[in-house]
Design a protein around this nucleic acid. Structure first.
Lengths: 217, 217
DNA sequence: CATCTTATTTTTGTATACGATAGTTTCCAT
DNA sequence: ATGGAAACTATCGTATACAAAAATAAGATG
């Protein structure tokens, strides 16, 4: 719980956009947001600025802020970039990883395995994040790590759903093993390839989900 | 000239960080910034938030904002990522470019050639941006285009210096021809390779410059 | 003389008030 | 009745005022 009102508003709106409570194009009215979060307009405005900065809202001068939920097309584009970034992280990690970092990576993956055993998708989710986090820190490029983490965060709310898809967890785990092996033997091309594939499959699963959701309506 | 005071402050501070008037770690005091730009603290705070968002400053809660000029290490890291992104843009552009876009690309490069003829580095700078902009829009991924453009902007102030380095302009132009040819024949691997190389050389030139600057002191 | 405590001061974070501008509504003229 | 103009309203952008927190400085006590 942050002591800053602006941060609370930012995270609150972010959450509501992710959960779909705030729909695309909806107006982010300063006054009503201030009312809802029981703060004045000042922190609300700061939150809106940050939302615009992170691409979750757009601002039309003298007109106001509006929710900018990514379209299907933008999601596909983001997955395309994510695939590249993850591949780059893995490729660099294959060259630069330390023994200690490799141990941590394997440990995180063991956590994933355990999560599947007890069929705990939330645990899998957390351990999966840990797994990828290990690769990010092992890539030896903090800027790249930051950018990749940031994009992962933007795709995250959807990803949580994807892992609940039947059989996805164990398939994902299998891909992890491929990635680990490639990194361990220092095979940059394989590490790159399997990591890209890992993301691409996520992207395709996401697309499946969208089509499914459309049919349900 | 933007009508918004906040934007004026943001761009002003950004400029002063780029030119080195504001040094790394220096405190961005709200009151004195307000004084210097003849505005109140409110737009100054908004500007600072945006600076933090774009990585040019860091904010320590209840302590204030401080200039965060990238270290040499971070610059190298950014070039590493830039190389990847530019490569990706070119690779996709090689698959997706339209006739019209190809014409625009060649035209921009002709502008570069002209700039060299009249020895106008500022013109070269602008036409070079136009050249890369063509590739970004031809890659068919607006998200990628946006991210790449954003990173380019962050490396920009240094790049302007680099192009003044002896012989760099004509070397850069030669690399452009390689990239154009690869894109034109739809050779994704070559487009990727030459674009990465183009950035990497820029990075190395940047490093040369740094070493040179250190020796001058 | 050193250290801890407390008071002062500086600065951040939030609230409110005011001015300006874009959008809307109403009224008048054709 | 319809189109345009003017007044009105709503909301944005900025300024200022106030409250809270942290740094600094000063004083007291061991």
């Amino acid at each position: 719980m942050s002591s800053r009102a602006a941060t609370r508003v930012f995270q609150g709106v972010e959450e509501q956009i992710a959960t779909g409570q705030l729909k695309d194009g909806e107006k982010l009215d300063e006054a009503s947001l201030a009312e809802r979060f029981q703060v004045s307009r000042t922190p609300v405005r700061e939150a809106l600025l940050q939302l615009v900065g992170s691409g979750l809202a757009i601002q039309i001068p003298k007109r106001g802020c509006f929710v900018k939920a990514p379209s299907v097309r933008e999601m596909v584009e983001m997955f395309e970039v994510m695939s590249e970034l993850e591949g780059m992280c893995a490729r660099l990690a294959a060259r630069r990883i330390s023994e200690q970092q490799l141990t941590a990576l394997k440990s995180a993956n063991a956590g994933c395995e355990q999560a599947i055993k007890v069929n705990d998708s939330d645990l899998y989710y957390r351990k999966n994040v840990e797994f990828h986090e290990c690769i990010y820190s092992a890539c030896g490029n903090t800027f790249l790590a930051h950018e990749t983490r940031s994009l992962r965060r933007r795709l995250q709310s959807f990803r949580r759903l994807q892992l609940r898809v039947r059989g996805r967890m164990s398939q994902s785990l299998g891909e992890h093993f491929d990635i680990i092996e490639a990194i361990e033997i220092g095979d940059t091309d394989k590490a790159d390839f399997f990591s890209r594939k890992h993301v691409t499959i996520q992207g395709e699963r996401f697309n499946d989900l969208l089509i499914q959701m459309e049919q349900e309506q």
